[in-house]
Design a protein around this nucleic acid. Structure first.
Lengths: 221, 221
DNA sequence: CAATCCCTTACGCTATTCTGTAAAGGATTT
DNA sequence: AAATCCTTTACAGAATAGCGTAAGGGATTG
């Protein structure tokens, strides 16, 4: 089993429960906890330069703001910095995020080893995840699949650009003019109208406000 | 000190940390934990009819959905049902919500005794909150005020309701009609216009799309 | 008591959105 | 070559958004 584990998590009470469980159920010898990303990274660096590196990082995704100044503010940034320092470091993300649209990129882009969704069984799941990761397998909280949105529809780059512009407050006329100035075709206001109207149908939106709200919540834009 | 405490919280790991702390630091004899609101209420009822009622309820606000069918789905509903059964029950809310607009009504409408915001010091705060409540005083997490100052402008419930309706695709006319049917005032289309226009200025938005996108990304709606 | 401020509401005007129809051109099929 | 499909585009009309002005009422101030 892992001998040296780092836990980055800003909820003090959660922290305590996890540390206790890992010690009693998995007999992990050394578990360090840090409440801030910056401090977690410093601890990784220190251990690395002392030739006694951590083997596993368990981190949350969202860290609350505070009076303390911070350079790194999210779990993803912490993972990137940690992997830059120590590419073979195993990483488990433990967060309350249950949107697969947000979680799947963690496996694809950040190559995390496991995702545990905080909830009623997260301690048992975390134990299982650590065991799986220790044997070089991945783990994914089962209840996430239940919440999967059944949207198979994929937005292409043209759709995405239009939607982002709309979310940034541009009118369709302005978007049309922007595309023309960039020599991107198609670019007519009419076509933009048609594209967006089709997205209304695809995502069941009543109007642009509704569409943008849905897509931002889905993490698509 | 309290002798019998009920903890309603759907995050298993949080639960463990809290129970451990309350036992060791406050020497509370009996602490029951429940992962579902319904079960928590049942336990309150059972203890009440056995003439050994709970003295304190510590509850979260949001409970995740599950395969289990539930009647009560939020902390507020649990508090109301609990107070109906046992009006003198002390209540502490322990949640990650840090928006004063959401928290203040808990004191005003639900007469809760303390609010502890989950975070880096929530365990110490919870201990302090319990001690205060035991002496018939109220407690309010100090960092909540700090988080307010970041955002000079605060959205009141009326603004929030309008924004959520807009994000759900309702037109201003429809929102006006909805408010009228609910006998909520003000309710004219003109006032809704004015409210939203003021939010454009406050948040530097060009139009409704822009405003909604910004506020969703800020986690306000 | 009058003056003032703030909030709500009505109204009017222009810009934009949303929804159709239709025409033109390219690509594919028959 | 003809028919068909798809995309782009223009245009038109009704609904909605966005913004200014103005009037009325309640609360506060001088």
């Amino acid at each position: 089993m892992f001998k040296k584990v780092l836990l980055a998590e800003d909820f003090q009470d959660t922290n305590l429960g996890i540390v206790d469980t890992l010690k009693t159920k998995l007999h992990i010898q050394e578990i360090r906890e840090e409440l801030y990303c910056d401090k977690a990274l410093n601890r990784l660096k220190g251990a690395h330069s002392n030739n006694s590196p951590f083997e596993l990082l368990i981190t949350d995704l969202h860290f609350k703001e505070d009076h303390v100044e911070r350079k790194i503010t999210s779990g993803v940034e912490l993972i990137r910095a940690a992997r830059k320092l120590q590419p073979n470091l195993k990483v488990i993300v433990n967060s309350m995020e249950d949107n697969p649209v947000k979680i799947n990129p963690l496996f694809k882009e950040e190559n995390i080893d496991a995702y545990v969704c905080k909830g009623r069984h997260s301690l048992e799941e975390l134990v299982k995840a650590i065991q799986e990761v220790y044997h070089n397998r991945t783990y994914y909280s089962p209840q996430i699949n239940l919440n999967v949105s059944n949207n198979v529809f994929e937005l292409d780059q043209f759709d995405l650009d239009i939607l982002k512009d709309l979310a940034n407050g541009l009118t369709k006329k302005e978007i049309s003019e922007k595309l023309k100035s960039q020599n991107i075709s198609p670019n007519s206001e009419s076509t933009i109208d048609k594209k967006v109207s089709r997205l209304f149908d695809e995502f069941g939106a009543k109007n642009t406000n509704h569409l943008i709200a849905k897509l931002i919540k889905l993490g698509k834009i």
